[in-house]
Amino acid sequence: MIEPTDRVVSGRHCELAVREWSGTNPGWIALISHGYGEHSGRYQWVAEQLVGARALVYAPDHVGHGRSPGDRVYFEDAETVVADLETLRREVAAEHPELPVVLIGHSMGGMLAARYAQEHQEHLAAVVLSAPVLGTWHVLDLLEHDVIPDTPIDPATLSRDPEVGAAYVADPLVWHGPIKRATLQAVDDCLLAINDGPMLDKPTLWVHGEDDELVPEADTRTGIDRIRGSEFHEHIYPGGRHELLNETNKAEVMNDILTFIGRELNS
């Protein structure tokens, strides 16, 4: 096991907790943007595989998530979270100016990664979007209610591996309460901005599970089709649920991701 080290980065609203995984002779930087309600510590296995492929890995806890301060899972403008990612990128790029940067985003973090890539493409070598919230998202229907109902995530929708769901339920750093109206509205606003934004010119890989109930592949595709550039690649995995990198075939998914990254970094 590669133990992460901790650092903080000055975000737009608070000092963000960041996990860093490193090995010897790094050849590139991986930035991980985690999903709604979770935290960077859930990416331990992912980070170890990336380090094994010569990455320096940095993963912040978004504001209001994990070990970062702020009202839990609350933000009023997704652009501030995107700005936090850019602050972290600037800081680590200044320490390692010779290393290319790859941005990896999952779920809501995939939405943030897509928006980041639209605004800062010149700083990225490649982008990986894992089950990103793009296009339309059924959870936004909750905004029609005067009081947002509590709709907890069914842990079985995360992975076919039941241990993933059990660990998710038991994780004290995961938010298990109701979603906040302001956060939902911020996601809605961000999706509209992405739909109206520029194409993704940097090499981009989209991976999604065919049986993803939390962020259905067909809904994401409506957003993907608006922003896919000329160097866009996709893998849709039969039977895959929402967290492909915690799935029973996670080694296959990771191999596809690392093959894509390696090809782009060496092209």
Rank of each mutant, 00 (worst) to 15 (best):
M1W: 13
T5K: 15
V9C: 06
S10P: 05
G11F: 07
H13N: 09
C14N: 15
E15L: 10
V18I: 06
V18W: 05
W21M: 00
G23L: 00
T24F: 11
T24K: 12
P26F: 10
P26E: 04
G27R: 11
G27H: 07
I29F: 02
I29D: 02
L31T: 01
I32K: 00
S33T: 00
S33C: 02
H34W: 03
G35C: 07
G37C: 04
G37V: 01
E38N: 07
H39L: 03
G41I: 04
R42W: 01
R42S: 00
R42V: 00
W45D: 00
V46A: 01
A47V: 00
L50W: 03
G52A: 07
V57F: 00
Y58N: 01
P60F: 12
H65P: 02
G66V: 04
R67N: 14
S68A: 10
E76A: 13
D77A: 10
D77W: 12
E79A: 15
E86L: 12
L88T: 00
R89C: 09
E91N: 10
V92G: 10
P97G: 08
P97R: 12
E98I: 05
L99S: 06
L99D: 05
P100Y: 09
V101I: 10
L103E: 01
I104G: 04
G105R: 03
H106R: 02
S107D: 01
A113W: 09
Y116M: 03
Q118P: 04
E119F: 15
H120P: 07
E122K: 15
E122S: 14
H123R: 10
V127K: 00
V133E: 03
W137K: 08
W137T: 05
L140D: 02
D141V: 08
L143Y: 08
H145E: 10
V147C: 13
P149K: 09
P149C: 09
P149V: 06
D150M: 07
T151D: 12
I153S: 10
I153T: 15
I153N: 12
I153G: 09
P155W: 14
A156I: 05
T157L: 12
S159Y: 08
D161L: 00
P162C: 07
A166N: 05
A166P: 03
A167Y: 12
Y168V: 01
V169W: 11
V169G: 13
P172Q: 14
L173R: 13
W175S: 10
H176W: 09
R181F: 07
L184V: 03
L184N: 01
L184K: 05
Q185D: 10
A186S: 06
D189K: 14
C190R: 01
A193Y: 06
I194Y: 12
G197K: 04
P198Q: 06
P198I: 05
D201G: 13
V207N: 03
D211C: 11
D212T: 02
P216C: 11
D219V: 08
R221Q: 14
R221Y: 13
I224R: 15
I224D: 10
D225Y: 13
R228E: 09
R228I: 05
G229M: 04
G229R: 03
G229V: 01
E234H: 15
E234C: 14
H235R: 15
R241N: 03
R241I: 00
R241L: 03
L245S: 01
L245R: 04
N246E: 03
N246R: 06
N249S: 13
K250L: 07
V253Y: 13
M254N: 06
N255Q: 15
N255S: 14
I257W: 13
L258I: 02
T259F: 15
T259Q: 13
E264C: 11
